[in-house]
Amino acid sequence: MKKELPERFKDYKNVWVVVEIERGRVHPVSWELMGEGRKLADRLGVQLCAVVLGPKAASTKAAVKQTYHYGADVCYICEDAALTDYRNAPYTEILTDLVNKHKPEILLLGATPLGRDLAGSVATTLGTGLTADSTELRIDDDNSLAATRPTFGGTLLCTIYTLNFRPQMATVRPRVFAMPEADTTRAGRMVWESLRMKEEDIVTKILEFVADNTSSEANLAYADIVVAGGMGLQNEANFRHVKRLAQVLGGDYGCSRPVVQKGWLPAERQIGQTGNTIRPRLYIAAGISGAIQHRVGVEGADLIVAINTDPDAKIFEFAHLGVVADALTVLPALSDAFARRLRAPALAS
């Protein structure tokens, strides 16, 4: 396939990130994308632009301000009551309009329920390519976007291009890229646009929002310390050892997929290809064999510690520290030892 961009796409310029706001809260994946988008824009010598869609509200204004802190030069803003909660029709309409009017060459969204729902519609409307769940974004020598993503559950990687169409679209999962530092001194340009669609034209209505009652629990994907257990823990009751260590360390806990399939822990605790991607500072994996589908979800961790009875377990190929031992005795011992150590300096001072 030849790379030959049709004339009508030649003035497509700049890197765009769609900022995902649900119920007034910006999803951190948007800032992670801004961090990566900044690098792409610098490499291309173009501007980084954010798209902020939402109601006329303080939370929308706050999000706009933050886009500059995370690297945006320009922010495209549409404030409309019809954009209060995410719905496919009005969001697709406004984002498609913005793209057709301002012509970005790269358009990035989070691979979240919102981002995947919206990106699929917008790419189809524009007739352009969309690479899903990218784990690496790079600018090629000819300035086109090379998006790499895992395939077949992470056994292989493939690099995908959108050669002859613009914008080049990609989604990226939360936690694949690191959170950039905010620079609160930065500011930028604002461009307002309005939604052509009226509430009467929107078929789908929101009757209610039922918040998950996990507000007290930390968000696994964003936890600094994660302790996880696999089939090596043998039964549901033994997960108390995992939860206790997580608690002692002030972290969160998770598991491998078969644990969810057994019904020992709920699906939102799953880590890996078809679960959460995590990037903690410390990841402790107990009784997990380290299958590729698990590995792809934890590779961003700074320090991986594996406890497994099998010296040949795959997990020792990518863990930083390993111990061949029974997790059922080591986990409680580790919790006790940590509890002692962390208390000791406080007592001494």
Binding site: L157, Y161, T162, E317, A319, L321, G322
Partner: peptide, 21 residues
């Protein structure tokens, strides 16, 4: 199809394996 798969490759293994306790 606007997207083109240019390259398929295996993830590179980590340099060293785990330090064992």
């Amino acid at each position: 199809s606007p997207t083109v798969v240019k390259r398929v490759f295996a993830p590179s293994p980590r340099e060293e394996s785990a330090e064992m306790v």
